[in-house]
């Protein structure tokens, strides 16, 4: 039992001081979940969060916990093992919130498709607020997509000013 509790308590460990930003002007916080891909989308996200790209300057930050996030950023095909982890992350996020799918895998399963271990992508399962196709999408593509969020495409879903 102590093991089960250990898994549950750390899957989304409340570390640091991450808080949901108060509103417009604060960065839009993204909680990234890799749901079982090759890690390529994650690598491009890391590149985007590093120099010479300026993710912070563009108005975005990476949250350490779902509770401190505005948007869930998903990459990789959804493996059956990660599905409940994704669900728990979503439920831990405060409203209003949204979902970004980064990469072909997160959208429709990509090269991995659907089988005994993966459910494919999120496209036919949930409402996606931002699609970032590619295998993987480049940091520039991702930044352009994210910028479209701030331009108002799903502005109504974001924290009020």
């Amino acid at each position: 039992m102590r093991m089960i509790r250990a898994v549950l308590s750390v899957a989304f460990r409340q570390n640091m001081m991450a808080m949901k930003p108060a509103g417009r002007g604060a960065p839009l916080m993204l909680f990234h979940i890799e749901t079982g891909g090759c890690g390529g989308c994650g690598m491009e996200l890391r590149a985007l969060a590093s120099a010479p790209y300026d993710l912070g300057g563009a108005g975005f930050g990476l949250a350490n916990t779902p509770a401190g996030a505005d948007m869930l950023l998903v990459s990789g095909p959804l493996t059956r093992m990660m599905a409940p982890v994704l669900q728990a992350a979503w439920e831990a996020m405060p409203d209003p919130k949204g979902i970004i799918c980064m990469g072909d895998c997160a959208l429709d399963g990509g090269v991995f498709g659907e089988n005994y271990a993966t459910l494919g992508g999120l496209e036919r399962r949930v409402t996606i607020d931002l699609r970032l196709p590619g295998c993987p999408p480049t940091p520039t593509d991702v930044l352009a997509g994210l910028a479209s969020l701030l331009r108002g495409d799903v502005q109504d879903d974001l924290p009020p000013a």
Binding site: R2, M3, A6, V10, F12, R46
Partner: peptide
């Protein structure tokens, strides 16, 4: 959530149990 199944050695080890992953906000698989 998948249940962690420890080995006997781990289950009998002393000390508080903690964990890392599988979703820590990082970029790794």
């Amino acid at each position: 959530l998948a249940v962690f199944q420890p080995s006997e050695r781990f289950a009998t080890a002393a000390g508080a149990v903690d964990g890392w992953g599988p979703a820590s906000g990082g970029v790794s698989p």
